[in-house]
């Protein structure tokens, strides 16, 4: 497995002349997690958008993102190999659970049967045996969150961006899902950025914490 380090270099984001993020640099080693905290509107989501390459053109941004030596700045989002978990699970409603996972699974896994096996194995690991043919709409919130995580990981990302993925889950589920996400990230050696405003998230992530304030 390739393990990379995620480099953020001198990132600055402004909107309409207002500085959201000023000269942010960080190095996130494989399996490590950088937690970015702050109130709404502080720019933490804009930071994730910048890293993933989907920042709205209304923002002005400087700085550089790299995975080891691979500079991502000119790459479109789909070529950056950054897995993202959003606040919503965003499972595609027209595809089955298995279909959602197959969408993420690289085409290098060839043959219908082989693809099916990979997906069932992944579901099995996550305690979701026999869920492949289910409609996502029939799943519970916790199950959907796990499928979203599986989908992100099956695409074989080199880093993980977490955009408050635990915020909408209830307490008990949140605890359990947090453990699952960070366990996977560490096991696969994925450098991770977590954006949240929940201190408990930061504690669970275990890495360094960056607090942004509204300026």
């Amino acid at each position: 497995m390739v393990m990379s380090t995620l480099h953020l270099q001198q990132i600055a984001i402004t909107i309409g002349g207002r500085h959201l993020i000023h000269d942010l640099s960080a190095k996130i080693a494989p399996g490590d997690c950088l937690t970015v905290m702050g109130p709404s509107g502080c720019g933490k989501s804009s930071l994730l958008a910048f890293v993933s390459g989907t920042l709205d053109p209304a923002f002005a941004a400087k700085g550089s993102v790299a995975l080891d030596d691979r500079v991502l700045d000119a790459e479109p989002p789909e070529r950056r190999r950054l897995g993202i978990l959003f606040q919503d699970d965003l499972l595609f409603p027209h595809l089955t659970v298995g279909g959602n996972l197959a969408f993420a699974l690289p085409a290098s896994v060839q043959g219908r049967a082989a693809r099916r096996r990979r997906i069932e194995a992944a579901l099995c690991d996550a305690g979701l045996e026999d869920f492949a043919d289910r409609d996502p709409a029939t799943l519970s919130g916790g199950q959907r969150a796990r499928v979203a995580l599986l989908r992100t990981l099956l695409a074989e990302p080199e880093a993980l961006l977490l955009d408050e993925p635990f915020a909408k889950l209830d307490m008990a589920l949140r605890e359990e899902f947090r453990r699952l996400v960070f366990a996977h990230a560490r096991m696969r050696g994925l450098p991770t950025i977590l954006v949240t405003h929940d201190e408990a998230d930061a504690r669970a992530a275990g890495g360094s914490v960056l607090k942004l304030a509204t300026i």
Partner: peptide, 29 residues
């Protein structure tokens, strides 16, 4: 009627170009 923008971001993060993401994820809906 659908959260198209968010779904497209998700599809692009999974490695799909914008047009293919739209055709595969948004069009069926």
């Amino acid at each position: 009627q659908i959260p198209a923008a968010a779904q497209l971001r998700a599809a692009r993060a999974l490695g799909y170009g914008p047009s293919q993401a739209w055709l595969a994820v948004v069009l069926p809906q």
